[in-house]
């Protein structure tokens, strides 16, 4: 009896269309984020994360409209990340119906932005997204650094220290992605997840590498994550959200069924 571990499907959206492919059987328009978000809402997802990978300003307007349409159909929390650089960006997304925003590169460029955003909008809606990559050589103590620009640009910043700092600056939650595991289907980076979770007093969402349901369980039991995020295992219909929750519950994890 207590707080449930959350399962969060993630949509990567470019210019109002879901990319990375989604293969639900009976959706007419497979790329429509609103249809997909509604489907996850009905399937029992605990939250939805919407990652906007749009680069153009015109595309951003499309994103705002898409968020508005999702928010009027989906009655679970919605996080929007990607391209959040100012309090104006945050205000726009919250007004469109987002409950939280994910801040990534902008936090690295200007850590005080996280402070200002948290002061203005409250920690509950500020998610700091961290893309971390292992930099220690085999045999050395494990060490991870954060990367920006989709994992292409090293920053020299230690991931654990960064997470602790972001929490002090008023982040309400950490969305932690392992660049080494993202897209591999080999499971979360559990030492990384567990190290970050122990370093911050705020909830940690594990992301990157989920290939089967046991990986979700491992993220919670060994990685000590408070929530697990996955995209492709749900998009391609390999597993439903309900199957994932049932599997986790059978292994002693508290979920919302």
């Amino acid at each position: 009896m207590g707080l449930a571990k959350r399962i969060i499907p993630c949509l990567d959206v470019d210019n109002g269309r879901v990319v990375k492919g989604v293969q639900f059987v009976d959706i007419r328009d497979a790329g429509d984020p609103v249809e997909i978000a509604k489907r996850y809402n009905e399937a029992g997802a605990d939250e939805i994360t919407f990652l906007d990978i749009t680069a153009s300003h015109q595309g951003r307007d499309t994103t705002v409209h898409t968020v508005e349409r999702i928010a009027s159909e989906v009655f679970i929390p919605l996080t929007v990340g990607g391209g959040i650089r100012s309090n104006d960006d945050i205000r726009r997304m919250l007004n469109a119906g987002a409950d939280k925003v994910g801040i990534n590169s902008a936090a690295v460029h200007n850590p005080d932005f996280v402070k200002a955003a948290s002061d203005r909008f409250g920690a509950q809606c500020i998610v700091v997204a961290i893309d971390a990559k292992q930099v220690s050589a085999p045999g050395e103590p494990l060490r991870w650094e954060i990367f920006t620009h989709g994992g292409r640009k090293p920053t020299g910043i230690d991931a654990i220290e960064w997470a602790a700092r972001m929490s002090e600056y008023g982040a309400g939650e950490i969305l932690l992605t392992s660049m080494d595991r993202d897209g591999t289907k080999n499971g979360f980076d559990l030492p990384l997840t567990s190290a970050i979770s122990a370093a911050v007093p705020i909830p940690v969402i594990a992301s990157g590498g989920v290939g089967n349901l046991q990986h979700l369980v491992d993220g919670v039991t060994d990685g000590h994550a408070d929530a697990v995020l996955a995209a492709s295992i749900f998009h391609f219909g390999e597993y439903s959200v309900l199957e994932a929750k049932t599997y986790m519950q059978e292994r002693g994890i508290e979920v919302r069924l």
């Binding site: 449930a4 959350r6 605990d46 920690a123 509950q124 007093p201 705020i202 408070d226 919302r256």
Partner: peptide, 12 residues
């Protein structure tokens, strides 16, 4: 066990 704050998510 250590509980994270904010209390965030679905509780009974």
């Amino acid at each position: 066990e250590v509980l994270k704050v904010p209390h965030m998510g679905w509780n009974q």
